[in-house]
Write a protein that binds this DNA or RNA. Structure first.
Lengths: 239, 239
DNA sequence: CGCTTTATTGACCCGAATCAAGTAGAGTGG
DNA sequence: CCACTCTACTTGATTCGGGTCAATAAAGCG
């Protein structure tokens, strides 16, 4: 399988062979993480960042009241906490939603890279900016879409993102996320999330049982979820 | 008045005189923007970014259904669309909430700067990462805080951010944002926003009439808003 | 000083949380 | 291999938060 971070970046800009090999070398320190384990802890001060190579992870934020909000889902190829390099202290955590493989990169190495390979540095910058765009989209989804539309929007987003790195094809993909987590992703109760899921299924645009998601009618699904892929920043462009 | 972007960056890392003068020169192309005018349009492909030097602006996202969501408020010193440099097409717009002064910077100039002044480049990267942290906080606020807490959280955030650049002192500041905009910031109806505002006022932690915000009890306000300033990334650290 | 925009209030109703069970799988150990 | 347990999912009943509609008051502003 090709390196998912390289696949991700090449989709958006061209990489020289030198740059590709820098990335390969940079991601050799791999580690396996068990399902539901924290990968980065809220409140910590990390000295390295990591790239997700396999599995599903999500960012979670614990509030003082004990409530939890999940602000992003990550798939192979995503940097999980590159933000952490430029922030002092983690305002949120990252947790494995399935068994995962990550590659750790010390911050110093990334800073050096931004000096020696500025173009690659800008591409890493771009990954954080694209990530921010996903978070902005999450604000609109949480704040303004009716619950079944939230689920539809998420299915559309993940289908496109997973397709990019070869994890989705023929209108279907695997998504190891429980309804409990989905509820915390949209600010809903689990009961209501479950009912919204049933409403969405009843449209016949999609089937979503357990971790198997199959899209039957893309057009209808994007209409329900008011989905506009602009924010995924899928267009190639020199940066 | 000192340059707000320089103030903002110096708060988080030290700047050389050379870097300061690069920033000064970079922001000389200033423009005045009238209240409620779009500064950057959703769907456009900008070739320059801008820094807000005076006034209040916000990011807004228009959904297909016609609903609007505001995902961030910007004050003097904030880059308004540095993201736009690394994204192909704007997934959201930026609009002036008051009369504003902005400084335009062509993208080419920022890219050049990332090659000639990598440290400054990383600080600009940091501004986008801090901005992303604000957006993540917004997800939690919108998704999990009760309405009066949303307002309290926002008052805490803006008091600290405005203090940084000298726009707030003695527990009070001016905030030219209508209740209509506040409602779109939290995904509420204007009616309910108004009622939540009254509930918050009734706690006596704050008074908030029109654009004048006065904080009477910081501790109480942060408790109501479950406010944790970590995400504001206020700690100095070499980057 | 009229006119438009913003803030406020009341009545009504629906959507979503909460509480409380119950069901179905997936592992686990005897 | 089956009972046991744990977790995830599903359902029903009830309560309450928040939206919508409609009208009025109060500011700004030209």
């Amino acid at each position: 399988m090709p390196h998912p971070l390289i696949t991700y970046l090449q989709r958006r800009d061209s990489l020289s062979d030198e740059e590709k090999s820098v990335l390969e070398r940079m991601t050799h320190r791999q580690e396996t993480i068990a399902v539901r384990t924290p990968i980065v802890r809220q409140g910590s001060r990390p000295t390295q960042s990591c790239v997700l190579l396999q599995g599903i992870a999500f960012r979670e934020h614990l509030l003082r009241s004990g409530k939890r909000m999940i602000s992003a889902v990550h798939i192979a190829g995503d940097f999980l906490d590159l933000n952490g390099m430029l922030l002092a202290k983690m305002d949120h955590g990252v947790r494995a939603a399935s068994n995962c493989i990550v590659a750790w990169i010390p911050h110093g190495e990334i800073i050096r890279l931004s000096e020696t390979h500025p173009h690659l540095g800008r591409l890493l910058w771009m990954t954080t900016v694209t990530d921010a765009a996903l978070t902005r989209a999450a604000v609109s989804v949480v704040g303004r879409l009716p619950p079944p539309a939230k689920l539809a929007h998420m299915a559309c987003e993940l289908y496109l993102r997973m397709s990019e790195v070869g994890l989705a094809k023929n209108w279907s993909f695997d998504l190891a996320i429980t309804q409990l987590d989905l509820a915390d992703m949209f600010g809903l109760s689990t009961v209501h999330l479950n009912r919204s899921m049933q409403t969405l299924r009843a449209t016949n645009a999609i089937s979503w049982d357990g971790s198997r998601v199959v899209i039957h009618d893309w057009r209808k699904l994007t209409d329900i979820g008011e989905f506009d892929p602009t924010y995924l920043n899928l267009e190639p462009k020199p940066r």
